[in-house]
């Protein structure tokens, strides 16, 4: 079997980062359009909004708070973008990948564990009650979503007998994983939306605590934090493609086009969910995660393991 993905020169990382930026812009614009539709604003204005907001935040003076822990604050704020960039290194784009790593699946998982620390650090750094409460909320949520997410990731590893993302894509040449492990895909999607502090899992950025962890962020700090937060959402959507949707496989179009197309579709679904599901507070989700999602994930893994053993 030839290698399903080829590792490209590291200088292509710049293209990868640009691709991430474009997808982030698409996500922001789409969210803006959905908001405009819900609230009766103008869709054209919402398309201009990402660029306008970027320009505004770049020019805004950076505010600080009394006795802020600036070092940890900056690490947390910038870290989300770094985590998103590190995540996409193992995501194949068609047949190319930046980092053909033997434990790519665990690498992705380790990068979303970084988000635990980063969101909390942003909440801590500003020395503000509301931001810190946001940080606490995120960790409470993280304890509930991370284990189910791990079981969902493991499902793909069992079925492909590898932790390498390229091998996982190759194992789907006959049947996409989403078809015979829908529960794992569902849990994975919940995990991605949750670690992106997005939509129903956005209570750490809630309106009830003045914007939560981002309450005291301003200027370029705010821009980088929110770019990174959209970045991890995009990375999560992009990683769903090699994991569950057969990677770049598809008719007529080249592999990279299929990767991009599938990523945009998954991303659009994640963005759309935001306005459809109310906030899921950590104390509500804790029981769901531990009493429903973990057993469901384990059963899914067991089923796949039985199939793999008996074939």
């Amino acid at each position: 079997m030839s290698d399903p993905v080829v590792e490209v020169d590291p200088s292509w990382a710049i293209v990868g980062a640009l691709l991430l930026a474009v997808l982030v812009m698409i996500a922001v614009a789409l969210d803006g359009m959905l908001a405009a539709r819900a609230q009766g604003g103008s869709a054209a204005a919402s398309l201009r909004w990402p660029a306008a907001e970027t320009a505004r935040l770049l020019r805004q003076r950076r505010r600080s708070t009394v006795a802020a822990d600036s070092l940890l604050w900056r690490i947390g704020g910038a870290g989300m973008l770094v985590a998103a960039l590190l995540k996409i290194t193992v995501v194949p784009f068609g047949e190319w990948t930046l980092f053909d790593f033997e434990a790519g699946l665990v690498w992705f998982n380790a990068m979303d564990a970084l988000v635990w620390a980063l969101v909390w650090l942003v909440g801590w750094g500003g020395n503000s009650v509301h931001a810190l409460v946001g940080g606490y909320r995120f960790l409470a949520l993280a304890v509930a979503y991370e284990l189910p997410l791990m079981f969902a990731l493991i499902a793909t590893a069992i079925a492909s007998e590898s932790l390498n993302v390229g091998d996982i894509v190759a194992a789907q040449s006959e049947l996409w994983f989403i078809v015979w492990m829908p529960v794992a895909f569902l849990i994975y999607s919940i995990g991605v939306v949750a670690f992106s502090v997005w939509g129903p899992f956005g209570s750490s950025l809630g309106a009830d605590i003045a914007g939560g962890v981002a309450a005291e962020l301003s200027g370029v700090d705010r821009l980088v934090f929110f770019a990174g937060r959209y970045g991890v959402l995009v990375a999560g959507a992009a990683f769903a493609v090699p994991l569950f949707l057969g990677g770049g496989s598809g008719a007529v179009l080249p592999a990279w086009a299929w990767s991009l197309l599938k990523t945009v579709v998954v991303l659009a679904a994640f963005v759309w969910v935001r306005r459809k599901v109310p906030l899921i507070r950590p104390e509500k989700f804790m029981e769901v995660g531990w009493m429903l999602l973990i057993p469901a994930g384990m059963l899914q893994d067991l089923l796949i393991a039985l199939v793999m053993v008996n074939r």
Binding site: V106, N109, A110, A113, L114, A117, W120, L139
Partner: peptide, 12 residues
């Protein structure tokens, strides 16, 4: 990778 994953979660 698992060391990084576990330790970051644990420290958080």
């Amino acid at each position: 990778v698992i060391t990084i994953l576990m330790m970051v979660m644990e420290m958080a």
